[in-house]
């Protein structure tokens, strides 16, 4: 597969069959997902990234997802998680298509210490676009159960840190499913947050594209490892009437996606270390891989909305 500008083809309404045919030889570092017709398919990342910005027409609106930076992690799976977070920031700054905004889907720090939050803030301050955060469980493990996170990122948020905002016709909803977790359960939203979500979505037209982001997957990826959200069905019921819902999360340090009606779910790579595929190891702990393999398992994600067109594209970019 060459370095042809695949994104232009997508914008022109390339058929899925043709797209898949052209992707037959790809087995590389990342993938661009399109949800045309509700079916995810992938094409080369390198080609998509190499695409020149289109001349004329509406500028596609893009935003970026970064996740699980785990600032402070220094174990065998990646002794330099700080360095790879910096590498992610450099890659984002080098993107030809500048994101309008960035979402961080949690586990900013490894242990919620002030020093780690300070370091993360300093590293991420160079991104050149506003960053919207949700906490991971690693950001909520201080004695104050999120006090450190909320002091930095909770201004204007509700409850334990949920909020919404609009950008260019897209409604973004930031959820916290790592607070007040129940014994034996998985991630949890709670009644207060669900009630807020209901009232927040009530004012939105069904045609408004919705992006929901939170740390732990809102669909059950693997219950035995707690990779899901106990009360997500109630949130998804509220989202069902919308024509386009994209749910972005982190936590599991790997790209996994699922499409359910008009809702597409996508988990992202970490910038710090990989985790095993669901059930592929005795536990979900950090996955140690040969050093040369690590960059292919870390990454960032770009999301692109093409105005007036159907495809919503996610580009998952691995470090190598």
């Amino acid at each position: 597969m060459g370095n042809e500008p695949m994104t232009d083809d997508l914008d022109d309404g390339m058929s899925r069959r043709r797209l898949l045919g052209r992707c037959a030889g790809w087995a590389g570092a990342g993938a661009l997902y399109t949800m045309t017709g509700g079916v995810a398919s992938s094409i080369s990342l390198d080609a998509a990234l190499a695409a020149p910005k289109r001349a004329g027409g509406a500028r596609p609106f893009t935003f970026l997802q970064i996740s699980d930076t785990h600032i402070g992690f220094d174990k065998a799976a990646n002794p330099n998680a700080r360095g790879t977070a910096i590498e992610a920031v450099e890659k984002i700054k080098a993107l030809a298509d500048k994101p309008d905004l960035i979402i961080h889907t949690g586990d900013i720090t490894h242990l919620s210490t002030d020093a780690q939050f300070d370091d993360a803030a300093q590293i991420l301050s160079g991104l050149g676009a506003p960053v919207f955060y949700v906490p991971g469980e690693h950001d909520f493990l201080d004695e104050g159960q999120g006090k450190a996170f909320l002091a930095r990122y909770g201004k204007g948020a509700h409850g334990t840190g949920w909020y919404s905002f609009d950008h260019d016709g897209v409604h973004f909803v930031a959820l916290n499913n790592v607070a007040n977790l129940k014994p034996g359960g998985m991630a949890h939203l709670g009644e207060e947050q669900l009630a807020w979500l209901k009232s927040d979505l009530a004012g939105q037209a069904s045609s408004t594209p919705i992006v929901v982001f939170g740390h732990i997957p809102l669909w059950t990826v693997y219950e035995a490892w707690g990779w899901g959200t106990d009360d997500s069905a109630q949130a998804l019921a509220l989202l069902r009437r919308f024509g386009s819902v994209t749910v972005l999360n982190g936590h599991i340090h790997q790209v996994i996606q699922k499409v359910e009606g008009n809702v597409s779910f996508h988990s992202a790579r970490s910038t710090a270390y990989p985790q095993p595929a669901p059930g592929a190891a005795p536990s979900p702990g950090p996955l140690k891989v040969p050093a040369e393999q690590l960059p292919s398992m870390l990454g960032i994600r770009t999301a692109r909305f093409v105005r007036g067109g159907e495809p919503i594209a996610l580009i998952d970019q691995a470090f190598a």
Partner: peptide
């Protein structure tokens, strides 16, 4: 008891 970070 449980782990409040990984409640499973």
């Amino acid at each position: 008891y449980f782990c409040s970070l990984h409640p499973h």
